[in-house]
Computed example of a mutant assay.
Amino acid sequence: MKRVCTHLRWIGLGMGLAVSAGSLAQACDLALVLAVDVSGSVDPQEYRIQMDGLAEALRDGIVAEALVDAQAWLTLVQWTGSSRQQTSISWAQMTTFDAVEAFAERVTQEPLLWRNYSTAIGEALHYSLASFDDIPDCRRKVIDVSGDGSSNEGLSPRDMHAALNAEKVTVNAVVIETDGEDLTGYFWENVITGEGAFVMTANGFADYPDRIRRKLQRETVRQLSDLDKGHLDLR
Rank of each mutant, 00 (worst) to 15 (best):
D37R: 00
N203S: 15
R214K: 15
V4Q: 09
I143R: 04
A70N: 09
Q85P: 03
R48G: 09
L54K: 01
D148L: 05
Q78T: 10
S39N: 02
A197V: 06
A99L: 00
R214L: 15
M1C: 12
V68S: 05
V169W: 08
G40N: 08
Y117R: 11
V63R: 00
Q85V: 07
L58K: 08
A173Y: 03
V107F: 01
T201S: 14
Q93S: 07
G180M: 12
R48V: 10
N152G: 10
H126Y: 08
D144A: 02
Q45C: 01
I11E: 11
V174W: 04
L58T: 07
M51E: 14
V63Q: 02
T80S: 15
Y208T: 05
S88I: 10
S131P: 02
A206W: 00
A99W: 00
A64G: 11
K229L: 15
I121G: 04
D144K: 03
A206K: 12
D210T: 13
A120C: 07
V142C: 07
P44W: 11
E65D: 15
L112P: 00
S128G: 00
D133E: 14
F187G: 09
M94L: 06
A72V: 01
G230D: 07
K2G: 10
S156R: 09
W10N: 10
S41F: 08
A25Y: 14
G230N: 02
F97E: 13
D228V: 12
F187H: 09
F132P: 01
L125M: 13
R235K: 03
D60H: 00
L164P: 03
W188V: 12
V33L: 01
W91C: 05
A18H: 08
Q45V: 12
N190C: 06
G194D: 05
Q85T: 05
T6D: 14
E219M: 12
F187L: 15
P44R: 12
E177Q: 15
A25N: 13
H161F: 08
T178Y: 12
W10P: 01
M1G: 15
E110I: 10
A31K: 05
S20P: 00
V191L: 04
D133V: 01
M51F: 05
L129S: 10
R158C: 08
T108L: 13
V175S: 13
V38P: 02
F97V: 07
G180C: 12
A92D: 09
Y127D: 06
Q78M: 09
S156K: 10
F103Q: 04
F132R: 03
L74N: 02
W73P: 01
D182A: 06
V199G: 11
N190M: 09
I121N: 06
L183A: 07
M94Y: 01
H7E: 13
D98M: 09
A166Q: 11
V4Y: 09
A163D: 15
K229T: 06
A202P: 06
E101I: 03
F198V: 07
A31Q: 11
R222Y: 02
G53Q: 04
D179H: 00
N152K: 08
D29Q: 14
V77T: 02
R222T: 02
A163W: 07
N165H: 08
K168T: 13
R140D: 13
R48E: 14
E46F: 03
H231I: 06
L32A: 05
